[in-house]
Amino acid sequence: MPTLARHERLAGAALAALAFIIVALGFFAVIGEPPLATLLSMAEYAVGDRYSLSETLVKMTPILFCALAAIVPARLGLISVGAEGQFHVGALIGTGMMLWTQPFDGWLLLPLVLLGGAAGGALYGWLPGILRARLSVNETITTLLLNYVGVLMVSAAVYGPWKDPGNLGWPATIAFPDAAVLPQLFGTRVHAGLLLGLLLALCLHVLFRFSRWGQSLDILKGNVRVGRMMGLDYRRHVIIVMALGGALAGLAGIGETSVIQGRLQPGISVGYGLTGFLVAWLAGHNALLAIPVSFLIGGLIAAGDTLQLFNKIPASSATVLQGLMFATALAVPGLIALWRSRRG
C-alpha cells in the first residue's frame, strides 16, 4: 500500500512539472517573448553558472527557513501564516542585539545577534500560540494580522529611534559590524545560514519521524481527544510548535538583514514568509522535501531578477510564474484524483 501511494505521488509530481512547463510556455507566448528560448534562459539564469547558482542559493535560504516555520505548526494541524511577521520581529530583535552589544565587538556578538533573531521570532509565534492554546483564538487569523504589525514595527524603528544619522535621511540602521555577520561562503553572497537551514531541516525531519515528540504531534493532529487519553497536553504542544516555528522565521529575518542587506531597513523581505508557507504546502509538510522545493522557488525568483536585467522582461513575471507553479502543483493532483474517481 505505501509503496503504491509513493509511486503515485512521484507520478503526480512529474505530471505537475510537465503541466507547469506547458503553462509557462503559454505565459511567455502571451507576453510576446519567444517561449522556449525564454524558458531555457530562465533555467540558465537559475543554475547555469557559478554566479546564477549562488544567487539561487541566496534566495533559497530565507524561503527554506520560512517553509520550516510553517511546517512545524502544521505537524500539529495548525495553519500558521505568520512567518512574514516573525521574520521581521526576528530581524528587529536581532538588530537590537547588535546595536546594544556592538561597542564590545567580541566573538560573542554573532551568537547574541542570532539568538536575538530566534527569540524575537519565537516571541512572535508564542503570542498567537498562547491565544490559541488558552482562548481557542484561530491561529491563522492572528498570525495573518500580526504580519502587518511586525512589518510596521520594523518601519517604526528605522524611521525613528534607530535611524543612522549618517544616512542623510535614508531610513536604515547603522551597518552590521563584521563580527555580527554570518560568514559568507565561496566568495559569494551565500552565507552560513543556508547550511544552518539545511541542518535544521534534516534535524526536524528526524525529530518528526523518529522521536517521541514527532509521534506525539501525529497523535494530537489526528485526534486531540485520544492524545489527551494518552496523557498528552495539547495546549503545551501548541505553544511549543508555534514558538519553534516563529524562531525559525526569526532566524531567516536576522540572517537576511545582517548578511544580505547589511543593515535593518524597510523591504528586507520580498514576501519570503508567504512564499515559505506555499513551499510548506507543496512539500506536503515534509521538512526534507522543503529543501528541493525551496531551491526550485529560489531559482525561479533569482532567474526573474536576471531576466529583467538582460532580457528586459519585468521581474514581476517571475512572481507570475511562481503563482502558476503553485496553482499547477496544487491543481494537478486534484485533477488526477477527480479523473480516477470518474473512471471508478
Partner: peptide, 9 residues
Amino acid sequence: MLNAVVPTL
C-alpha cells in the same frame, strides 16, 4: 472512531 483511535495513523 471519534474517541479512541487516530484514524489518520
